[in-house]
Design a protein around this nucleic acid. Sequence first.
RNA 1: GGACGCUUAGCUCAGCUGGUUUAGAGCGCCGCCCUUACAAGGCGGAGGUCGUAGGUUCGAUCCCUACAGCGUCCACCA
Length: 893
Amino acid sequence: MQLIAKTYSPQEVEDKWYKFWEENNFFHASPTPNKKPYTIVIPPPNITGILTMGHVLNNTLQDVFIRWKRMQGFEACWVPGTDHAGIATQNVVERDLIKKGIYRRALGREEFVKKIWEWKNEYGSTIITQLRKLGSSFDWRREKFTLDPNLSIAVQEVFVKLYEKGLIYKGKYIVNWCPKDHTAISDDEVNFTESLGHLWHIKYKIQNADEYISVATTRPETMLGDSAVAVNPKDERYKNLIGKNVLLPLSNRIIPIIADDFVDAEFGTGAVKITPAHDMNDYQTGLRHNLPQLIVMDTSGKMNENVPKKYQGLDRYECRKEVLRDLEKLSLLEKMEDHTHSVGHCYRCDTVIEPYLSDQWFVKMKPLAEPALQVVKDGKIKFHPDRWTKVYEHWMENIRDWCISRQLWWGHRIPAWYCVGDSACKIECKNAIVSIEKPKSCPHCGSTNLVQDEDVLDTWFSSWLWPFSVFEGPNKKEDLEYFYPTNTLVTGPDIIFFWVARMIMAGLEFQKEIPFRDVYFTSIIRDLDGRKMSKSLGNSPNPLDVISTYGADALRFTVIYLAPIGQDVLYSNEKCEIGRNFANKIWNAARFLLMNRENLDGASLSSTSQNHNLDFIDTWISSRFSSTVKNITKALDEFNLNEAVKILYSFLWHDFCDWYVEFTKHRIYLSDDINYKTTLVDRAISIFDDSLKLLHPFMPFITEEIWQNLSERKKNETITLQDWPKWNESEIKTQIENEMIYLQNVIGAIRSIRSEMNIAPSIKLNVSMRVSDEKRILLFEQNNSILKKLTNVEEFIIGKDITKPQASASAIIMGDEIFVPLKGLIDLDVERNRLEKEILRLENQLHGVMAKLNNEKFTSSAPKDILEKELSKKENFSSSIEKLKISLLELGN
RNA sequence: GGACGCUUAGCUCAGCUGGUUUAGAGCGCCGCCCUUACAAGGCGGAGGUCGUAGGUUCGAUCCCUACAGCGUCCACCA
């Protein structure tokens, strides 16, 4: 007997078992011909990340799938790893260095990258190591990092392939520029937030006329880069101005008034200033009208040399103030109104994005998107919940090219080279040479003076290869063949475009096969007020603290218990009491069994125990267990872990502990037969043993701890590798389950009467029952002494023709009448009240049934079985009412 | 502007393609119990006209329409 403590202490067992699992390599998977693979790749957390509740949910779900499949006999492979996270990491390390007085630019690229690697080697595995605390059964031998040499080669190969296929191009386009991070970011990395701004109306003077045209803008400072003023061609107000020029204030440049359909005559003044280098729409308009693209800011968002001297060097917002002040002085500011609009922010640092014209690399997405759209439409890849497929399809059908170059130092450098040549240089030499290796010389002029592109690739450009790049290495071919495509991807819906969609494209393009079959989109964890967990709000609990107070199992169980598929979860630490209390319940069930086992020690069991027939309750619990296995397996197959955990909770707590153990307890106490007792305990242990297996994927630590103590185990035996229980359809016995419901109701009724009549638990009662059915009488006889224990009844008098004792409380259970003589124990008014209330309730029910039955349309068109059910309901209700009325009458006498 | 989701007990949510549930669970609440596994527990109980208004149907928490509130995503916003 080792389970002595009355309450379970996770802290004392969790680390021990993780170490045991890891040292025995239970989680390692390798291609095994006679076993089916089941593969999950972790959504690689950023190396700068710390463990959040989001990670907890995400990784718990994956671990449940993996552990379950492993027990089902699959070669289950869960690949751990981390993401280099370009901008995020570079920022973190740069900030770190600044504290030490070291500056990135002074350090130089090579040294700075070296510093990041040092940082990575020290802190980069923090988060993934923390996942051990959660019990995650990763194949640690396969841990990967997106910047590992093998994975980097994969990135470069893919880049070259796409380039050669014409799907990667370089060009000057307007992109989302982050002035703080000094890099372009993709459309998807921009967060729009509504904010209150202003709409300024500025007067531009028409050239050679004493007339003005007013333009409306939210960004006056960009007027320094204006190339035109546009109006709608149908706008009567401005028709005569089209083709004329205006004098751009402050810069005093002459720019044309042009007509373009995109201008909405209703908005603002109906005239728009066009700044092709600093606005997405204006950029397009500029192309249509062949307008000059004047860049007026530098990469930090400060005004550059293309603006009048007084504005040069000013930050864009300071410049705005100056421009407005100057316009005011010139009386060119017609009016200012409040205007709410959405403003793009950098998803990393929240700085306001500047649309910025620059040289960038892009991936042409349409050709990649088409097959990726198809596999989802065809159901080859399924989303759970399904509604995300619509979102996916919409995005894929309207996909835009992907800007993949980043002006950072940390990441995969673009494998493109430029001739910076010699005197012999030709125009073609300026073109990029795309190649994994540095070319020996320029193919055009022969110069050996070549430099690599300064930019690195978007982090997602390595992430989208993750489901197959993780298998890069010496066994690449076998591993890929065996483990790819992976089975299930578990991730948040927030990265459906960033990551999920792109992985599908990359899988199909480079492996000619989908990367995974099912995508499980997790819930978003929020606080009790429904706010997203975030560092700045300080509302995100540290999972490690939660684990140390409640235990990893409790945390795992709780998040799954709280997270139905596709719904957000409102979480607070206190909710972990659900999991903790459940763990404790399991713990005590184990204590009960083992204490009894110990008391019986010495009794031999094997041969004699076989001689004892199964009691009613044994058949019942087997039936319940089989249903439970069946239903849990079904729920897991359907990705419904929340449902699975509830089924298990209810089975273990209510069926097993509340009823089966309670019955068994009294069977043990009532018997003198040591063999019988031993049989009972062993049966209970056997069912409990199997139940622990069902629970193991959800609560790996406590189940291992108990399982190891439940019987003699061989060295290095583990619940982790036990077979997932199978159910036997023939053991599911509806008849038995109904009989049990009957008994539960009888017991419940007696307890209820006792409680409502305020009869002390210590007072023994006598109970008579008028039972119609022979089988039920038999059932009573079989369980008589246990029923007496469970209800504290002195004597049951059961029969078909029982007369109601005087002054007794009564109740009706599934047609049978039960009488509890009260002989002065209580005020009969209480009972009268109780009966009247019950009669009223039944009468209401009957009323509803009669409404249906009196409706001819119902009786003529309802299906037969429904009709019969209503008829039998009617019978039951009216006979019950009658019986209760008689009881009520007798009470009055 | 477009799409999606949510609205059921005081709180957080189930209710899986219309009649088997007398609308359930956990927490909270009320009452009784420290009964030899468990007070992180046991037993009993109160509490809901299933967001509003229509419609389909013999029958609607469930299907349809409109509306309201909350939330999310996409697009656009001079």
